[in-house]
């Protein structure tokens, strides 16, 4: 049987469509009590403009699954880290041509090209198409690509 938590974790991220919010690690808690569901999520960035869309997507997915009394709350602490992206999420990002973030415990010197796998890449801009991404180029295959910033 599909639980409310399954439904919530399967909601796709509006900006990184290849991964779900479960993959991203932003779902903190899903508490159910009969038809009442209380969801707690955490933002990737303080000013992430996708948060409103995520809240709306969670509510509509739960309504479709038969839950009627839904609340979605946001908590900041502990702060989200890209280390919370699951291994499945990291694979899905790479498959979609977006380099997964480095690990925050180690110094990340380069991003591996998600297309050809070369480590000979250069950062074009620390800031990319959304708050969570930076812009890179592969020197081997010449392709530009997005990378999830390590946070």
């Amino acid at each position: 049987m599909v639980t409310a938590a399954d439904v919530v974790r399967a909601v796709p991220d509006p900006e990184l469509r290849a991964v779900t919010i479960g993959d991203l690690g932003i779902v903190r808690a899903v508490d159910t009590d009969g038809s009442r569901v209380s969801v707690t999520i955490t933002p990737t960035y303080s000013g992430c403009p996708a948060m409103d869309a995520i809240r709306a997507d969670i509510a509509s997915a739960l309504r479709e699954a038969g839950f009627s009394d839904i609340s979605v709350n946001t908590v900041l602490s502990p702060a989200w880290s890209t280390d919370w992206i699951t291994d499945a999420g990291r694979s899905k990002l790479a498959e979609a041509g977006i380099a997964p973030p480095g690990r925050t415990v180690s110094l990340t010197l380069t991003m591996r090209c998600p297309r050809c796998g070369s480590a000979d890449t250069e950062e074009l801009s620390r800031f990319g198409s959304t708050a969570c991404k930076s812009l890179w180029r592969c020197r081997s295959c010449s392709e530009p690509f997005d990378a999830v910033k390590t946070l």
Partner: peptide
């Protein structure tokens, strides 16, 4: 894009 992103962080 960089300046807009920094602005967005500040706004958040």
């Amino acid at each position: 894009i960089a300046l807009a992103n920094i602005a967005l962080d500040q706004l958040g």
